[in-house]
Structure formats: C-alpha cells, structure tokens
C-alpha cells in the first residue's frame, strides 16, 4: 500500500474493520469495509460520530488532477478501483512518471 486518501470513518461490523466512506472525483461517494490496519483515524469513531481518516490505497494511474486508485477491498459502489482527485491525498503524488518497470 502506497498512499493515503481522505475518508470518513465509522465503526465496522467487526472490531477488526472500519466502515470507510470516500469521495470520487465525480462527486459520487464510495464505501467499503477496510481492515483497521489500513486506516489511520483521528479519534475513535462511533455510530453517530464518524471521524476523519486516511485510507491506504495503491495508485493505478495518474492523469492531470486525478488518480485511479486500487482500494484495499471492494467498494459497494465502484468495485476495487475508483478515480479520486489529487486533493484527496494526504501527500499528493506527483504527476511525473518516474519509470516504466
């Protein structure tokens, strides 16, 4: 896992997970259950009081002000891959590609 994107964090259905909600570049929301180890939270979320957090994702592609990222688990709305704005990143990735593997 490489980058952190902004998310709202709620308790999960199990203690080992969080319910996570993020925003796609289209404005649509996506949500998923993510293992607690892949979410950095600013506080303890409760049912009625979500907290801000950061979800670890992997970048699939970068183009302009957007990035296609791979989520750690499938989202309900958009599967494993979603497109998010670079402003959603904790540390925005640079758009300059370093190298082809």
């Amino acid at each position: 896992m490489k980058y952190d994107i902004r998310c709202q964090v709620f308790p999960g259905q199990f203690s080992s997970e969080y319910s996570v909600e993020g925003q796609q570049s289209s404005g649509d929301l996506f949500s998923l259950f993510a293992p607690v180890g892949l979410v950095e939270v600013d506080g303890v979320p409760t049912r009625d009081h979500p907290v801000e957090g950061w979800l670890k994702v992997q970048i699939w592609d970068l183009a302009g002000s957007k990035a296609v990222v791979q989520l750690p688990r499938e989202s309900f709305e958009s599967g494993r891959f979603v497109t998010v704005g670079l402003n959603q990143f904790k540390t925005p990735p640079q758009t300059v590609e370093l190298a082809e593997k």
Binding site: K2, I59, Q70, Q94, V96, E97, L98, A99, E100
Partner: peptide
C-alpha cells in the same frame, strides 16, 4: 493486481522508489 508503473514518491514495502 497492481499497476506496472511507478510514480515519483511512491513507496514500496522495501522502501521509497524515488522523488
């Protein structure tokens, strides 16, 4: 499973790749 491209500042389990 993962992109075959690397990006500036990208970190991997083994460490930072650049940037």
């Amino acid at each position: 499973e993962r992109s075959d491209r690397t990006f500036v500042g990208q970190t991997a389990p083994e460490g930072r790749t650049g940037g």
